[in-house]
Amino acid sequence: MPFDPSRVDCWIFDLDNTLYPPSTRLFDQIDQRMGEYIQNLLGCDPVEARRVQKLYFHDHGTTLSGLMHYHAIDPYEFLGFVHDIDMAPLGAAPRLAGRLAALPGRKLVFTNGDDAYAARVLGALGLADSFDGMWDIHAMNYRPKPEISAYSSMIEALAITPETAVFVEDMAQNLAPAKALGMQTIWLDLATDWGDRAKDDAAIDLVAGDFVQWLDYTLASLADQGTLG
């Protein structure tokens, strides 16, 4: 079924490389900090730290989950360390804020990061007041997307009706659980290294190559259907 924005009353957005473009290379800074954390934790060299980091990411959904599983680390300490980065690559996006404000219904952030980091990102983008709620890694009880519990717990806690929700995400593998639970799904195909990993075409209602252009398309469709206030 093609994407139908008129059915949506809850807009759920991933954070990293979704609300801002990969060209900011913000995650490169986080990636480097993760490597430094693992080197310090295990006393290993950068090559081994990189291997461990990516192994845990692929096997557990996030590097954090793997580290908690094998090394019982403190998630708050880890997240504070790896998210201690420079937000200067991000700039205020008033036009994006305007588009988000024009969407009818609730707007939520659904991120494998933590709320403190997400708040810094949204603040740097000028989007601090653009969302009605957030579901982060702490709320997920450290079982990240694409773990089905991350989605089902959010649906229950935030009183979301999946059939009238849409999830927008740059990591294709994170869309399948949302689709299975009844949401519409949008994949932002941004040609990143891991964006198409474990992609399931049947779990994707629409592929978009640019977030702002997709918002423009969506708002125009709602206007044409007479459902935009």
Rank of each mutant, 00 (worst) to 15 (best):
A92I: 10
D45P: 10
D201P: 09
P177D: 02
R50S: 14
D115Q: 14
A124K: 12
K179P: 12
G66V: 02
V82P: 06
L222S: 06
L15M: 13
N174L: 02
L206H: 15
M68F: 09
L90F: 13
Y217G: 10
D189K: 09
W194C: 00
A202P: 05
K199C: 10
W187E: 06
C44Y: 07
A198V: 00
D14C: 05
I12Q: 05
R99K: 15
L26H: 06
L190A: 09
K145M: 04
H71L: 02
Q184C: 07
P22M: 00
D200F: 07
V207Y: 11
Q53I: 01
G126Y: 03
N40M: 09
I148N: 08
A124E: 05
R95Q: 12
S152H: 02
V52L: 12
Q29I: 00
H69T: 07
S6M: 03
L41M: 08
Q184D: 09
K179V: 01
T218Y: 03
G209Q: 12
E156M: 03
G226Q: 09
G113Y: 07
Y20A: 01
A198K: 14
V82E: 07
T192Q: 15
W11K: 05
L26D: 01
R50W: 08
A128S: 15
A202V: 01
A139D: 14
D129G: 12
T24E: 03
A119K: 11
R143W: 06
T111P: 03
L64N: 08
L90H: 12
P177H: 02
D115I: 13
Y20V: 01
D114K: 05
G35E: 07
P177K: 02
S152L: 06
T161N: 13
Y20F: 15
I73K: 07
G209T: 03
N174W: 05
V166A: 15
N174C: 15
W11L: 08
D132I: 05
R120L: 12
L64E: 10
D14P: 09
P104N: 10
D170C: 02
L190P: 03
D136C: 10
D170F: 04
L100E: 13
S130M: 01
I85V: 14
H69L: 09
P177G: 01
A191L: 02
P21K: 04
N174K: 04
M154H: 07
L122E: 11
G229R: 13
R51C: 08
L158T: 01
C10P: 04
D196R: 14
T18C: 15
V168T: 08
S23D: 14
A93Y: 06
R25H: 15
T218L: 09
T227S: 12
D216Y: 14
A191N: 14
K145P: 10
A139F: 04
D136W: 03
Y217E: 10
A202L: 09
L55C: 07
D84A: 15
E48H: 15
A198W: 13
Q225C: 04
A191P: 03
Q29K: 04
D31G: 11
G113I: 00
P162K: 13
I137P: 10
I148C: 10
L175G: 05
K107T: 01
D136N: 06
